[in-house]
Design a protein around this nucleic acid. Sequence first.
DNA 1: ACCTGAACACCGTTCAAGT
DNA 2: ACCTGAACACCGTTCAAGT
Lengths: 263, 263
Amino acid sequence: MFQNGSGLSSTVLAVSASELPPVPRLPTRDGAGRRAGRPPRRRALTREAIVDAALSIVDAEGLDALTMRTVAHSLGTGAASLYAYVSSKEELLELVVERAIGEVRFEGEPDPGRWLEQMKSVAQEIRRMYARHGDLARASFGRIPLGERALEASEWMTGVLRAGGLPDQVVALAGDLLGMYVTATAYEESLYTRENVTADEFAQFTAGLRDYFASLPADRFPNLVELAEPLTASGRESRFDFGLEVLLRGLAAIPADWSPQQP
Amino acid sequence: MFQNGSGLSSTVLAVSASELPPVPRLPTRDGAGRRAGRPPRRRALTREAIVDAALSIVDAEGLDALTMRTVAHSLGTGAASLYAYVSSKEELLELVVERAIGEVRFEGEPDPGRWLEQMKSVAQEIRRMYARHGDLARASFGRIPLGERALEASEWMTGVLRAGGLPDQVVALAGDLLGMYVTATAYEESLYTRENVTADEFAQFTAGLRDYFASLPADRFPNLVELAEPLTASGRESRFDFGLEVLLRGLAAIPADWSPQQP
DNA sequence: ACCTGAACACCGTTCAAGT
DNA sequence: ACCTGAACACCGTTCAAGT
């Protein structure tokens, strides 16, 4: 749930909260497995500050611009100094993703009569969060955020799906599926929202794509030629809404006793 | 269609076939936009050979092991020599993805009575293709392959969806959605099929995840605690089948006049 | 005309040497 | 005890200099 798909990633976000149990991890082979550990006493440099700086860089210049050097530079140090607070770039990315997910707000309690609306609204909320943070969705993909805030999100979504009367196994699978859908969509959308591609250039590209389909040899690609227009017509918003609609209608249509054909 | 989601990527695969029109492109800012151009006369090194070598590396060691240097080395040259055949690593990745998609086979003609089965089977076919090629799905994500083989795939899928009686706009959106689902799933699955994570380690991780959920404070995370088992029980196969089932049922349930609420 | 070694400007990460 | 400059082993890409 909220797992950005079924993802069981190799590393997983450490919980900062006190009373939560230690997070399970897949072993890493490259020896970058140690944790930062000790609290940062009385220093200007803190985990918080590093995550802040990293997220700001992603917002302003995208994920590719986030390097240990750029983060360190924006904090007035060298890259090596970050390793006292963060065990690897991988861990830093997890912290940044967790921070972003923590921004998502859930209003109200799970309402049995409104579970579809509630799921739709939280999906849109998450999408908006990603839209605020450049192409962060790319880093988010395939991770299972298990930090406190992410768990709260999973808890809420699980509650909504259960309130909807879905059986437990379907609740679990549905949460993963919706998380994956939103993250994947957000990632793809970030590709054409890159600050160095103007809306005009994008429109031109779309038009070019339509003309490309339209000009294919009609004997070999009759359907693509005929559908050149609808294939390239939909905007981001409609694509997202369409997929969400399909997923939710499909979920509502899944029988209570669903199980895979070949176990 | 077959676009691995709604993806309109910044660069797009060049069509190798003769009679197809030139592919539309989004402008790139980093000046890496030139094409290889001239045919490789009588040389051992060819585009084909380079793509072969690159795909072999992905199969054997994963996408991260694919560097211009490793590819060149496996062909007995230096990285610089590849740039006579391929304008950038980005273009090489597109060629590799296209090659892999070309492996997917479609049996039979679109059959109006069997469109759901046909879509399900092609989705499984594509998933198997990705499973053969390490974590190639990662490189595939967010690209629109427009090469000849990919177009044939899109043509076929479009035909099946139309045969199913879906309206044109739904056909277009559905193709993107299914493509994105399969690619995203394949990518996530590749994360735990990494050759350096054994099945045993994975099972252990899953068990750890279950125990993690189960041991959360029950007052704050009642649903996660209660659903610890189902949340971590499903295998890859069931996850994939579940999502596919949801998508196809949802598609079948979309009204013919669907359009986004806020245009 | 074709090819490529060496270089450039980067990475993430480590560690000896400073304070 | 804490911090970090410099180095290591890599990247993708370029280009002058070879044949």
